[in-house]
Design a binder for these strands. Sequence first.
DNA 1: CTGTTAGCGCATTCAT
DNA 2: ATGAATGCGCTAACAG
Lengths: 358, 358
Amino acid sequence: MSTTPQATPRRATITDVAREAGTGKTSISRYLNGEMSVLSPELRARIEAAIARLDYQPNQMARGLKRGRNRLIGMLLADLTNPYTVEVLQGVEAACHALGLMPLICHAANEVEMERRYLQLLTTYRVEGVIVNALGVREETLRPVGGGGIPAVLVDRSVDGLVADMVGLDNRAAAELGTRHLLDNGFDDIWFVVQPFEQVSSRQLREAAFREAMSEQGGNGAARGHTLVLNLADAVDVERSLAELDRAIDAAAHTRDAGATGNAARVALFAANAPVALCLALHLKARYGAGWQARVALLSIDDPEWAELTGVTTIRQPTYEIGYRAVEFLHERIEGVQTTARDCLLPGELIVRASTLR
Amino acid sequence: MSTTPQATPRRATITDVAREAGTGKTSISRYLNGEMSVLSPELRARIEAAIARLDYQPNQMARGLKRGRNRLIGMLLADLTNPYTVEVLQGVEAACHALGLMPLICHAANEVEMERRYLQLLTTYRVEGVIVNALGVREETLRPVGGGGIPAVLVDRSVDGLVADMVGLDNRAAAELGTRHLLDNGFDDIWFVVQPFEQVSSRQLREAAFREAMSEQGGNGAARGHTLVLNLADAVDVERSLAELDRAIDAAAHTRDAGATGNAARVALFAANAPVALCLALHLKARYGAGWQARVALLSIDDPEWAELTGVTTIRQPTYEIGYRAVEFLHERIEGVQTTARDCLLPGELIVRASTLR
DNA sequence: CTGTTAGCGCATTCAT
DNA sequence: ATGAATGCGCTAACAG
């Protein structure tokens, strides 16, 4: 009868441990829950040994079922391809770790239908709360969640009529900051490029703030502002939109020498986020070659890894903190703290690089 | 008596539904599991109605507890910051979706300790299998998993003495492909730059294949190959290593005109993966300015989004398929298919860009 | 076809 | 200080 621990076929249960330790299940449970003060040192030692011998690990599912909470929270992500998302996720993970939560990460890959499905799935696993960074979130979709159901906190966007906390960038301030920077550097033909607004409040806010900043520009200016919607999911639309941009750029080049204010008239592109910025950069590079940055200025909200490499000015979001705060908010609500919906707006940081300097 | 579905305080259970439908729990269960043929249309309708009325959603935890399987699989990731990881993840998600599995994504953020913790946590949640792409995986660590425990499949690296399937890039072929390309384009001072090997078999394989290809180079050549280990986690080490590279580059520049074979002697850097390539590119840009690509050639395994933008030649991995296959393998094992450990090596694709052409 | 019974692994009264 | 009994929400025999 070889004792070689040849592959435990079935994981040990609390009952096994109890038998092994020659005691009742209750004591094991107490041990598991740290109620040490109620256990005689002797029994405690026996339990400890038994657990080690059986390599016992309590079944979270069962525990969750019994006590009604499983320490699981859902994390619904629209797009992991966006560096922003990954960075936020790091904050979320750190916070979860600190609070003893386990994030169930759901990646909807920009599919609204997927978002719905995942939300429903999370519900089914009885997560204690949800952090949502999706694009199709509407009041109705989130109903089973935010409503009277499980607590939710929104990241980077808010949903009308939904009682849920929200944390994200101070979009107004950020867009203003960027616009000012462009204006201050003498660009007088500025294009704000953004994905279709859909339900994403941050896109709307950024664009609105841009327009406002343009209309309030300092005394000297007659810089012109335009908004261009770029539907990254639709190649044809992208084509069309980029062509429009090209025309504007060419036009500016022609009027350059005729410009009123000396050598002005350079075009600047203000990307609402990294995916848009990437699309623009790729196009510009293809059209104007390696030296495109000298031809057209590019500024982007979000600070992807290639920004430094390519000298693009950016507005970096406090992504890590956004994720961290989101979990903290959620945790409070899970623990029963009742407040009205809170909004947490964090400031962005302008990182000036060559592309917007002249 | 207002019918406004004002926030269900407690989710409905199967018992509630049974009562609401005026039947027993068994029938509800049967309905849930699609055993329609065994239910009278009439009962079926009543159940359907009751479920809708109560907005009932079966508790996965409870189901899992009872039937012994919860359709959960663990996905342990070393670094979500690496585009490679995200791309593999997409394949994993697609496959899970197709197979009715739910991936529990664990991001260890390059911390070996975290990996251990997550592995243990996954065990605790009784996942049915695990897909591992970590750096600290050793036989012992994976013991509770791969051994007689839950099925596992490794991505991008194998572990000695562990019975587990593995799927990833055909590293030998890829490194060879890259080296050949560099050789064919006349570079005669080639540096293979890689992170510390640790437990990561793919790094070792790539480096070995590089050296081999160098020693087998075509008749005309006396190109020299070097290996440089770059510990991205250690700023000081990075500094030191980059300085070494700089010296080599400068030296080559000096001997350029004195070169035997006409105008040869350009240095080429062969990055073992994207993070390394990024580090190199950033350094080169800082040192040689925007035109660094003309000075030093850069080739990288992995094809990050900025490669096209910066004209870096790459070897693209079939990431999506890697993820997809991994899940398929795991699924088979979960379903009880017994085979010896399989290795699935997928080919990489060389994408030639300006940086390695002369 | 349908309901009754008995657990899955664990946490909790409630006794002892 | 310890253990027996009960039930969380659900499925799976086993009867009817």
